[in-house]
Design a protein around this nucleic acid. Structure first.
Lengths: 202, 202
DNA sequence: GACAACATACCAACTGGTCGGTTTATTACT
DNA sequence: AGTAATAAACCGACCAGTTGGTATGTTGTC
């Protein structure tokens, strides 16, 4: 009983395909023609749902990447009062996922990819991306603050500084896997990150 | 007394302009047409000196970025036996440079930019870039090994792990400045990196 | 029938790259 | 030293293909 015209469905198909293409080739390296072909839709459909290539990119951030980041990296630390333990668990899980399917991580972090490519070139991208990063850091800073109060974190550390450093370092580590196109140095760097987290204990 | 035809000069002008354009717009985002225009040469000259766009990119890595990285990040740590002190000095100097001229750092690390964009797409880029990263990590690992022997570094740390983590974290931090297009979080993250370095003392 | 949801043909602008030709520098020979 | 031959350096028009984007038409749904 699926109707021939399913606008929401078409839109989602375009969005998802655009996300995958952008994750693989970057935004500038992805072409509208290829996206519509892979999505199995026509250019008319795409430009009916999105004003242009930039707007499509914006929608990919707002409607896919934002939720992804929240679900995988922010929510797990929400209301944490032992961020050292919870972050260790999180990144070890990520490393395990990377082992099972290296292809995803070897294309880099979708958010940071776009950040590095587009932030200096387009303000629309920059603000949308920075919104995610800011929420990310704020969540971790809160967790470390809670940790200090709960006695799970060395009280002399600055929650904001640790949060900023952790996010930067984590994105750098993921970038390492992409750069090398294998998990060797990535795995090593994760070890270093865990060592760092442990150094924050009281 | 400058000869009309100065091949070495022309080549360098193209190379330097290509470096700047790539640093600003990425490799795929830079166009041959714009490069020749900005360099004040013709397309014939460019394709006389370089086989194609990729070869030009390779030359930018081999002849500009490689030396840059060596001079600014590898040589200062060569034969260091107190890497904690020397690395702190190095990154504080970099932060000072960034304050004086934010525009350069806000375009990201030229090496890592190319790594993130091109490593998954082209093996020629990947190997050339990875060569620099490998040399970089090896130098720092050696310095930490020396530091352990000299008693300036906690002997329980793994030199290779620390080196890998430091390089990843540093590139992540530089990426933060590019992503945010300002130095606020960058500065914070550098604080975190320094705190981390101090935690490696005996 | 009205309007959203598509489809298709098409466009100017630009992409990396080529090619025939000209200019300059270097070499070889007298 | 003078000059002819050769090679390197450079020029700019041109190419086929692709880019993001549009205009117009058709189809389906309420």
């Amino acid at each position: 009983m699926t109707p021939v015209k399913a606008p929401e469905d078409t839109r989602n198909k375009i969005l998802q395909t655009a996300f995958e293409e952008i994750h693989k080739n970057g935004f500038q390296g992805s072409s509208i023609n290829q996206i519509v072909e892979k999505a199995g839709v026509t250019k008319g459909a795409l430009f009916h749902h999105f004003k242009g290539k930039n707007e499509l990119g914006y929608a990919v951030i707002d409607e896919i990447i934002y939720g992804m980041g929240k679900e995988e990296f922010i929510n797990p630390l929400k209301e944490s009062s032992d961020p050292i333990q919870d972050l260790k668990q999180l990144i070890l899980k990520k490393r395990e996922q990377a082992r099972e399917d290296p292809s995803f991580i070897c294309n880099g972090c979708p958010l940071n990819n776009l950040a590095q490519e587009m932030s200096p070139l387009d303000e629309g991208f920059r603000t949308r991306i920075e919104k995610v990063f800011t929420a990310w850091r704020a969540c971790y800073a809160k967790a470390f603050k809670n940790g200090i109060e709960a006695g799970t974190v060395d009280p002399t550390v600055s929650p904001e500084t640790v949060a900023a450093f952790f996010v930067s370092a984590f994105e750098g580590i993921v970038g390492t896997a992409k750069s090398a196109q294998n998990l060797e140095v990535f795995t090593r760097s994760v070890d270093g990150l865990i060592y760092y987290l442990d150094s924050l204990k009281p």
